[in-house]
């Protein structure tokens, strides 16, 4: 190893689908919006208490909108994946970011998951688990076709390796 060089983690090669931004926005709105909507409705109908619900509405709405505006785009910039002949490599997260590498020889099961919201956007998620309880690689926000191909490739690669992968 050369001493005058710094090592850096290279981001995985493939981005997830742009549609994933829409999916994450919708998903975050389910958490962020119900509270301000409740306050808004109360503000509309309980006129004497408007001085309370007005500020509450704003206090609940602004952070929620910020979250919905920032998180999906940030995630899109971080979430990436890559599969080589030896390993799967994926990055995820936004404030807390996570990079995972699992050698194909250690992958035990490959699952594909499409939640109702993901289906709405035509997206799929893949989980490749290893024998470690903490070692699963999750790739979310892939196109259906890409996901299916990836699952096939992963399954083929893991079958090629004998042993119980522990």
């Amino acid at each position: 190893m050369l001493d005058n060089q710094e090592l850096r983690l290279r981001p995985p090669r493939n981005r997830v689908e742009t549609r994933a931004i829409g999916w994450w926005t919708l998903q975050s709105s389910l958490f962020a919006l119900p509270l301000p909507i409740t306050f808004g409705v109360l503000w509309l109908f309980i006129t004497p208490a408007r001085f309370v619900f007005g500020p509450l509405f704003l206090v609940a709405l602004v952070p929620g909108l910020l979250f919905m505006g920032i998180m999906p785009v940030w995630r899109y910039r971080v979430h990436r994946w890559e599969m080589t002949d030896e390993a799967v490599y994926a990055a995820s997260g936004w404030l807390w970011q996570r990079w995972r590498v699992v050698p194909l020889s250690r992958v035990q099961t490959v699952d594909m998951l499409r939640g109702p919201l993901q289906q709405l956007f035509g997206l799929s998620g893949i989980t490749a688990t290893s024998a470690s309880s903490a070692g699963a690689v999750k790739i979310k926000g892939l196109d259906h076709r890409t996901a299916t191909e990836l699952v096939e490739k992963l399954t083929r690669a893991t079958q090629a390796v004998p042993g119980d992968a522990t």
């Binding site: 807390w96 970011q97 996570r98 990079w99 995972r100 699992v102 050698p103 250690r106 290893s130 470690s132």
Partner: peptide, 12 residues
Amino acid sequence: IGWTITRSAFQR
């Protein structure tokens, strides 16, 4: 059997 690297905003 694999590596997991995590970095919070502060760690970055």
